[in-house]
């Protein structure tokens, strides 16, 4: 299972792709595999603000219902509307079409609290 090197990761298994002051957020392939087939994703409304490590939504799989945690604080600019009809995208392309939301980052310094790819790989190999 590959861990893309251009992303940052939270210990709660979310990834962040930074682009200027914007960030795209999703859950990792490891998280998607642990959850099993995702059947429903609940996301916040655009315009809402998220705290770092606060919950931003819920992902439901055939196994469990789990909270989603924001790896960085910011304002929600866009959510992935595709997931409403095709939640399986989270399993199929967790780092691509299965993305969940785009944020305007409130404080870029928070990114320093996240893991890089080798550190995240280390984390999932320990569990």
């Amino acid at each position: 299972m590959g861990v893309p090197t251009d992303l940052r990761y939270s210990k709660d298994h979310e990834w962040v792709r930074v682009d200027g002051d914007g960030a795209t957020i999703g859950i990792t392939e490891y998280a998607a595999a642990q959850l099993g087939d995702v059947v429903f994703v609940e996301l916040p409304d655009p315009g809402s603000t998220l705290d770092q490590f606060g919950t931003f939504g819920v992902v439901e799989s055939v196994k469990a219902v789990s909270d989603l945690f924001a790896p960085v604080a910011g304002e929600v600019v866009e959510v992935n509307g595709e997931l409403a009809g095709r939640p399986e995208l989270v399993n199929e392309e967790p780092y691509g079409a299965g993305w969940m939301l785009r944020l305007r980052i409130a404080d870029a310094a928070q990114l320093e609290q996240l893991l890089d790819a080798p550190a995240y790989e280390q984390l999932i190999s320990e569990t």
């Binding site: 087939d37 059947v39 429903f40 439901e60 055939v62 939640p87 399986e88």
Partner: peptide
């Protein structure tokens, strides 16, 4: 037999 739980939920 084995049911397709994912499609049943989606």
């Amino acid at each position: 037999r084995r049911l397709d739980e994912a499609t049943a939920a989606r």
